[in-house]
Simulated scan of single mutants.
Amino acid sequence: MPGIPTNFEFSPPKTKFCLLTFPALHVLLVTINRPKKLNALNLPAHFELDEVFNWYNREPELWVSIITGSGDKAFCVGQDLKDELTSKKDQTISIDDFPPSGFGGLSRRVDCFKPVIAAVNGFAIGGGMEMTLACDIVIAAKDAIFSLPEVSRGIIAVNGGLSRLVRFIGYQRACELAFTGRICSAKEFKELGLVNQIVPFYKDAVPAALKIASEIIKNSPDAIKVTKRGILYSLESPSLTEAERKLFDSEMTKKLFIQDNFKEGVRAFKEKRQPKWKNSKL
Protein backbone atom coordinates (compact mmCIF):
# COMPACT_ATOMS: atom_id res chain seq x y z
CA MET A 1 0.00 0.00 0.00
CA PRO A 2 1.19 3.56 -0.58
CA GLY A 3 2.75 5.30 2.38
CA ILE A 4 1.31 8.24 4.28
CA PRO A 5 0.77 11.17 1.90
CA THR A 6 2.87 14.22 2.65
CA ASN A 7 0.40 16.83 1.47
CA PHE A 8 -2.19 16.61 4.23
CA GLU A 9 -3.46 19.95 5.47
CA PHE A 10 -4.01 18.39 8.91
CA SER A 11 -1.84 15.72 10.52
CA PRO A 12 -3.40 12.26 11.03
CA PRO A 13 -4.29 11.46 14.65
CA LYS A 14 -2.16 8.95 16.52
CA THR A 15 -4.02 5.68 17.01
CA LYS A 16 -3.80 2.69 19.33
CA PHE A 17 -6.91 0.69 18.53
CA CYS A 18 -7.07 1.09 14.76
CA LEU A 19 -4.70 1.28 11.79
CA LEU A 20 -4.80 4.12 9.26
CA THR A 21 -3.56 3.34 5.77
CA PHE A 22 -3.91 4.99 2.37
CA PRO A 23 -4.40 2.30 -0.30
CA ALA A 24 -5.18 4.74 -3.10
CA LEU A 25 -5.11 8.45 -3.85
CA HIS A 26 -7.73 10.28 -1.74
CA VAL A 27 -8.76 7.07 0.07
CA LEU A 28 -8.46 6.40 3.82
CA LEU A 29 -8.67 2.82 5.09
CA VAL A 30 -9.53 2.50 8.79
CA THR A 31 -8.91 -0.98 10.21
CA ILE A 32 -10.18 -1.73 13.70
CA ASN A 33 -7.21 -3.54 15.20
CA ARG A 34 -8.34 -5.67 18.15
CA PRO A 35 -8.47 -9.10 16.48
CA LYS A 36 -8.02 -11.03 19.74
CA LYS A 37 -11.21 -9.32 20.96
CA LEU A 38 -12.96 -9.88 17.60
CA ASN A 39 -12.55 -6.12 17.18
CA ALA A 40 -14.87 -5.33 20.08
CA LEU A 41 -14.41 -1.72 21.15
CA ASN A 42 -13.68 -0.42 24.62
CA LEU A 43 -14.59 3.13 25.58
CA PRO A 44 -11.23 4.72 24.65
CA ALA A 45 -11.50 3.15 21.18
CA HIS A 46 -14.76 4.99 20.50
CA PHE A 47 -13.12 8.33 21.19
CA GLU A 48 -10.12 7.41 19.07
CA LEU A 49 -12.37 6.54 16.11
CA ASP A 50 -14.35 9.72 16.71
CA GLU A 51 -11.09 11.65 16.34
CA VAL A 52 -10.19 9.67 13.21
CA PHE A 53 -13.47 10.46 11.46
CA ASN A 54 -13.36 14.08 12.62
CA TRP A 55 -9.99 14.28 10.89
CA TYR A 56 -11.28 12.52 7.77
CA ASN A 57 -14.19 14.93 7.66
CA ARG A 58 -12.01 18.05 7.64
CA GLU A 59 -8.97 16.81 5.67
CA PRO A 60 -9.37 18.04 2.04
CA GLU A 61 -6.98 15.42 0.62
CA LEU A 62 -9.30 12.56 1.68
CA TRP A 63 -12.41 11.98 -0.42
CA VAL A 64 -13.56 8.45 0.53
CA SER A 65 -13.13 6.32 3.65
CA ILE A 66 -13.38 2.57 4.11
CA ILE A 67 -13.74 0.92 7.51
CA THR A 68 -13.07 -2.76 8.20
CA GLY A 69 -11.87 -5.09 10.95
CA SER A 70 -8.52 -6.85 11.25
CA GLY A 71 -8.29 -10.62 10.97
CA ASP A 72 -10.55 -13.14 9.29
CA LYS A 73 -13.40 -13.41 11.80
CA ALA A 74 -14.94 -10.06 12.66
CA PHE A 75 -15.71 -6.57 11.50
CA CYS A 76 -16.71 -5.60 15.05
CA VAL A 77 -18.67 -7.59 17.64
CA GLY A 78 -19.80 -4.52 19.55
CA GLN A 79 -18.88 -3.25 22.99
CA ASP A 80 -16.08 -4.94 24.93
CA LEU A 81 -18.34 -5.53 27.91
CA LYS A 82 -15.85 -7.71 29.76
CA ASP A 83 -13.23 -4.98 29.62
CA GLU A 84 -15.58 -2.21 30.68
CA LEU A 85 -17.38 -4.08 33.45
CA THR A 86 -14.06 -4.92 35.07
CA SER A 87 -12.64 -1.40 34.74
CA LYS A 88 -15.67 0.71 35.76
CA LYS A 89 -16.43 0.91 39.46
CA ASP A 90 -20.19 1.18 39.04
CA GLN A 91 -20.25 -1.77 36.59
CA THR A 92 -22.50 0.13 34.14
CA ILE A 93 -22.19 1.76 30.74
CA SER A 94 -24.44 4.64 29.68
CA ILE A 95 -24.92 6.67 26.53
CA ASP A 96 -22.93 9.45 28.18
CA ASP A 97 -19.83 7.23 28.06
CA PHE A 98 -19.75 7.47 24.25
CA PRO A 99 -18.73 10.40 22.04
CA PRO A 100 -21.61 12.37 20.45
CA SER A 101 -20.85 10.61 17.15
CA GLY A 102 -21.80 7.30 18.77
CA PHE A 103 -20.40 3.80 18.51
CA GLY A 104 -17.04 3.71 16.77
CA GLY A 105 -17.30 7.43 16.05
CA LEU A 106 -19.86 6.66 13.34
CA SER A 107 -23.23 5.31 14.46
CA ARG A 108 -24.74 8.70 15.43
CA ARG A 109 -22.57 10.92 13.25
CA VAL A 110 -24.57 13.46 11.25
CA ASP A 111 -21.88 15.91 10.13
CA CYS A 112 -19.90 13.90 7.57
CA PHE A 113 -20.84 14.47 3.92
CA LYS A 114 -17.98 12.38 2.51
CA PRO A 115 -18.65 8.73 1.65
CA VAL A 116 -17.90 6.01 4.21
CA ILE A 117 -17.85 2.40 2.97
CA ALA A 118 -18.05 -0.59 5.33
CA ALA A 119 -16.03 -3.66 4.31
CA VAL A 120 -17.60 -6.29 6.55
CA ASN A 121 -15.19 -9.20 6.81
CA GLY A 122 -17.02 -11.25 9.47
CA PHE A 123 -19.22 -10.68 12.51
CA ALA A 124 -20.98 -7.29 12.69
CA ILE A 125 -22.74 -7.59 16.00
CA GLY A 126 -24.43 -5.01 18.25
CA GLY A 127 -22.59 -1.73 17.89
CA GLY A 128 -20.69 -3.22 14.97
CA MET A 129 -23.98 -3.59 13.10
CA GLU A 130 -24.99 -0.08 14.15
CA MET A 131 -21.79 1.17 12.52
CA THR A 132 -22.63 -0.57 9.23
CA LEU A 133 -26.11 0.99 9.27
CA ALA A 134 -24.44 4.40 9.49
CA CYS A 135 -22.17 3.75 6.50
CA ASP A 136 -23.17 4.85 3.01
CA ILE A 137 -22.25 1.62 1.22
CA VAL A 138 -21.80 -1.86 2.71
CA ILE A 139 -19.71 -4.67 1.23
CA ALA A 140 -19.98 -7.99 3.07
CA ALA A 141 -18.18 -11.31 2.89
CA LYS A 142 -20.49 -14.24 2.10
CA ASP A 143 -20.16 -15.63 5.64
CA ALA A 144 -20.58 -12.27 7.40
CA ILE A 145 -23.05 -12.27 10.28
CA PHE A 146 -25.25 -9.36 11.43
CA SER A 147 -27.22 -9.05 14.65
CA LEU A 148 -28.53 -6.66 17.29
CA PRO A 149 -28.43 -8.99 20.33
CA GLU A 150 -28.70 -6.26 22.96
CA VAL A 151 -32.09 -7.36 24.31
CA SER A 152 -30.64 -10.75 25.23
CA ARG A 153 -28.19 -8.94 27.50
CA GLY A 154 -30.74 -6.66 29.10
CA ILE A 155 -29.64 -3.56 27.17
CA ILE A 156 -30.73 -1.76 24.01
CA ALA A 157 -29.15 -0.63 20.75
CA VAL A 158 -28.97 2.99 21.82
CA ASN A 159 -26.36 4.31 19.39
CA GLY A 160 -28.57 5.06 16.39
CA GLY A 161 -29.14 1.57 15.04
CA LEU A 162 -32.84 1.29 15.89
CA SER A 163 -33.89 4.56 14.24
CA ARG A 164 -31.90 3.81 11.10
CA LEU A 165 -33.12 0.22 10.93
CA VAL A 166 -36.82 1.12 10.97
CA ARG A 167 -36.34 3.79 8.31
CA PHE A 168 -34.37 1.43 6.09
CA ILE A 169 -36.46 -1.76 6.26
CA GLY A 170 -39.82 -0.76 7.79
CA TYR A 171 -41.50 -1.11 11.16
CA GLN A 172 -42.43 -4.79 11.36
CA ARG A 173 -39.16 -6.16 10.02
CA ALA A 174 -37.17 -3.83 12.27
CA CYS A 175 -39.20 -4.97 15.27
CA GLU A 176 -38.53 -8.62 14.49
CA LEU A 177 -34.78 -8.15 14.28
CA ALA A 178 -34.60 -5.87 17.33
CA PHE A 179 -36.98 -7.91 19.54
CA THR A 180 -35.42 -11.30 18.80
CA GLY A 181 -31.79 -10.30 18.39
CA ARG A 182 -31.51 -13.12 15.89
CA ILE A 183 -28.52 -13.69 13.63
CA CYS A 184 -28.84 -12.65 9.99
CA SER A 185 -26.71 -13.69 7.03
CA ALA A 186 -25.16 -11.38 4.46
CA LYS A 187 -27.62 -12.82 1.92
CA GLU A 188 -30.62 -11.85 4.05
CA PHE A 189 -29.22 -8.38 4.65
CA LYS A 190 -28.69 -7.89 0.92
CA GLU A 191 -32.31 -8.90 0.32
CA LEU A 192 -33.35 -6.35 2.96
CA GLY A 193 -31.32 -3.66 1.21
CA LEU A 194 -28.80 -3.32 4.05
CA VAL A 195 -25.86 -4.74 2.06
CA ASN A 196 -24.89 -3.52 -1.40
CA GLN A 197 -22.60 -6.33 -2.49
CA ILE A 198 -21.56 -9.79 -1.26
CA VAL A 199 -18.05 -11.10 -1.93
CA PRO A 200 -16.87 -14.73 -1.58
CA PHE A 201 -14.33 -14.40 1.24
CA TYR A 202 -13.34 -12.06 4.08
CA LYS A 203 -10.19 -11.02 2.21
CA ASP A 204 -12.29 -9.83 -0.75
CA ALA A 205 -14.24 -7.19 1.18
CA VAL A 206 -11.65 -4.41 1.20
CA PRO A 207 -10.65 -4.84 -2.49
CA ALA A 208 -14.34 -4.66 -3.45
CA ALA A 209 -14.75 -1.52 -1.35
CA LEU A 210 -11.65 -0.03 -3.00
CA LYS A 211 -13.14 -0.71 -6.42
CA ILE A 212 -16.24 1.28 -5.49
CA ALA A 213 -14.06 4.02 -3.96
CA SER A 214 -12.16 4.27 -7.24
CA GLU A 215 -15.43 4.85 -9.07
CA ILE A 216 -16.47 7.53 -6.58
CA ILE A 217 -13.23 9.53 -6.82
CA LYS A 218 -13.66 9.84 -10.58
CA ASN A 219 -16.39 12.35 -9.75
CA SER A 220 -16.35 15.83 -8.27
CA PRO A 221 -15.78 15.71 -4.50
CA ASP A 222 -17.95 18.83 -4.22
CA ALA A 223 -20.84 17.19 -6.05
CA ILE A 224 -20.48 14.02 -3.95
CA LYS A 225 -20.73 16.05 -0.73
CA VAL A 226 -23.85 17.91 -1.82
CA THR A 227 -25.39 14.71 -3.17
CA LYS A 228 -24.87 12.94 0.15
CA ARG A 229 -26.39 15.89 1.97
CA GLY A 230 -29.42 15.70 -0.29
CA ILE A 231 -29.85 11.99 0.41
CA LEU A 232 -29.60 12.62 4.15
CA TYR A 233 -32.20 15.40 3.90
CA SER A 234 -34.52 12.90 2.22
CA LEU A 235 -33.91 10.40 5.02
CA GLU A 236 -34.43 12.88 7.85
CA SER A 237 -37.14 15.22 6.55
CA PRO A 238 -40.87 14.52 7.04
CA SER A 239 -41.66 15.03 3.35
CA LEU A 240 -39.97 14.89 -0.05
CA THR A 241 -40.99 18.49 -0.68
CA GLU A 242 -39.22 19.68 2.46
CA ALA A 243 -36.12 17.63 1.65
CA GLU A 244 -35.93 19.14 -1.82
CA ARG A 245 -36.39 22.65 -0.43
CA LYS A 246 -33.66 22.16 2.17
CA LEU A 247 -31.21 20.96 -0.47
CA PHE A 248 -32.11 23.74 -2.91
CA ASP A 249 -31.82 26.44 -0.23
CA SER A 250 -28.72 25.12 1.55
CA GLU A 251 -25.53 27.18 1.63
CA MET A 252 -23.57 24.14 0.49
CA THR A 253 -25.67 23.87 -2.69
CA LYS A 254 -25.29 27.58 -3.41
CA LYS A 255 -21.52 27.42 -2.92
CA LEU A 256 -21.25 24.40 -5.23
CA PHE A 257 -21.95 26.54 -8.30
CA ILE A 258 -19.10 28.98 -7.65
CA GLN A 259 -16.42 26.36 -6.93
CA ASP A 260 -13.53 25.50 -9.25
CA ASN A 261 -14.78 21.93 -9.60
CA PHE A 262 -18.12 23.08 -11.00
CA LYS A 263 -16.35 25.25 -13.56
CA GLU A 264 -13.95 22.41 -14.41
CA GLY A 265 -16.80 19.97 -14.91
CA VAL A 266 -18.51 22.30 -17.41
CA ARG A 267 -15.23 22.98 -19.26
CA ALA A 268 -14.35 19.29 -19.45
CA PHE A 269 -17.79 18.48 -20.86
CA LYS A 270 -17.45 21.17 -23.56
CA GLU A 271 -13.91 20.06 -24.40
CA LYS A 272 -14.86 16.34 -24.42
CA ARG A 273 -12.21 15.31 -21.89
CA GLN A 274 -12.02 13.88 -18.40
CA PRO A 275 -12.22 16.56 -15.68
CA LYS A 276 -9.32 17.18 -13.35
CA TRP A 277 -10.88 17.63 -9.93
CA LYS A 278 -9.40 19.56 -7.04
CA ASN A 279 -9.83 18.92 -3.32
CA SER A 280 -13.18 20.17 -2.11
CA LYS A 281 -13.41 23.54 -0.39
CA LEU A 282 -17.02 23.07 0.67
Results as ranks from 00 to 15, higher is better:
residue 113 F to R: 11
residue 246 K to Y: 12
residue 195 V to W: 09
residue 150 E to V: 05
residue 182 R to S: 10
residue 109 R to H: 06
residue 167 R to Q: 09
residue 229 R to W: 11
residue 143 D to P: 00
residue 245 R to Y: 13
residue 222 D to A: 02
residue 246 K to N: 14
residue 142 K to C: 03
residue 167 R to L: 12
residue 124 A to M: 04
residue 223 A to S: 12
residue 203 K to Y: 15
residue 195 V to H: 05
residue 156 I to H: 12
residue 134 A to C: 07
residue 239 S to C: 07
residue 122 G to W: 08
residue 203 K to T: 13
residue 142 K to I: 00
residue 171 Y to T: 12
residue 174 A to H: 04
residue 156 I to N: 09
residue 145 I to L: 13
residue 140 A to R: 08
residue 228 K to T: 09
residue 244 E to R: 15
residue 189 F to E: 06
residue 213 A to Q: 07
residue 199 V to C: 07
residue 129 M to H: 05
residue 111 D to N: 15
residue 212 I to V: 14
residue 111 D to M: 08
residue 153 R to C: 09
residue 245 R to K: 13
residue 198 I to W: 00
residue 189 F to S: 04
residue 179 F to C: 11
residue 143 D to M: 08
residue 148 L to A: 05
residue 236 E to V: 03
residue 230 G to S: 08
residue 155 I to Y: 03
residue 209 A to P: 02
residue 148 L to D: 00
residue 152 S to I: 13
residue 244 E to I: 13
residue 223 A to F: 12
residue 125 I to C: 11
residue 172 Q to H: 14
residue 168 F to E: 11
residue 134 A to I: 13
residue 121 N to S: 13
residue 136 D to K: 09
residue 204 D to I: 09
residue 172 Q to M: 13
residue 125 I to G: 03
residue 103 F to R: 01
residue 242 E to N: 10
residue 122 G to M: 07
residue 170 G to N: 01
residue 161 G to N: 02
residue 186 A to G: 01
residue 182 R to C: 07
residue 133 L to S: 03
residue 109 R to E: 06
residue 156 I to E: 10
residue 200 P to W: 07
residue 159 N to P: 01
residue 176 E to H: 14
residue 179 F to G: 01
residue 116 V to I: 15
residue 243 A to Y: 07
residue 120 V to N: 05
residue 200 P to T: 04
residue 119 A to F: 03
residue 232 L to T: 12
residue 176 E to R: 13
residue 123 F to N: 10
residue 103 F to W: 00
residue 193 G to K: 02
residue 151 V to E: 06
residue 208 A to Q: 09
residue 208 A to K: 10
residue 219 N to L: 15
residue 115 P to W: 08
residue 161 G to H: 02
residue 138 V to K: 06
residue 184 C to M: 15
residue 118 A to N: 07
residue 237 S to E: 15
residue 162 L to W: 03
residue 138 V to T: 12
residue 169 I to P: 04
residue 227 T to S: 15
residue 145 I to M: 13
residue 193 G to Q: 08
residue 222 D to R: 05
residue 207 P to I: 03
residue 205 A to G: 02
residue 110 V to P: 01
residue 216 I to T: 04
residue 218 K to T: 11
residue 220 S to M: 09
residue 246 K to D: 10
residue 110 V to C: 11
residue 232 L to K: 15
residue 246 K to R: 15
residue 249 D to H: 14
residue 247 L to C: 04
residue 227 T to V: 04
residue 233 Y to Q: 07
residue 245 R to V: 10
residue 150 E to S: 14
residue 140 A to P: 03
residue 125 I to S: 12
residue 150 E to P: 03
residue 206 V to M: 05
residue 153 R to S: 12
residue 139 I to A: 00
residue 223 A to C: 08
residue 157 A to D: 04
residue 203 K to I: 14
residue 104 G to E: 10
residue 218 K to W: 00
residue 205 A to K: 05
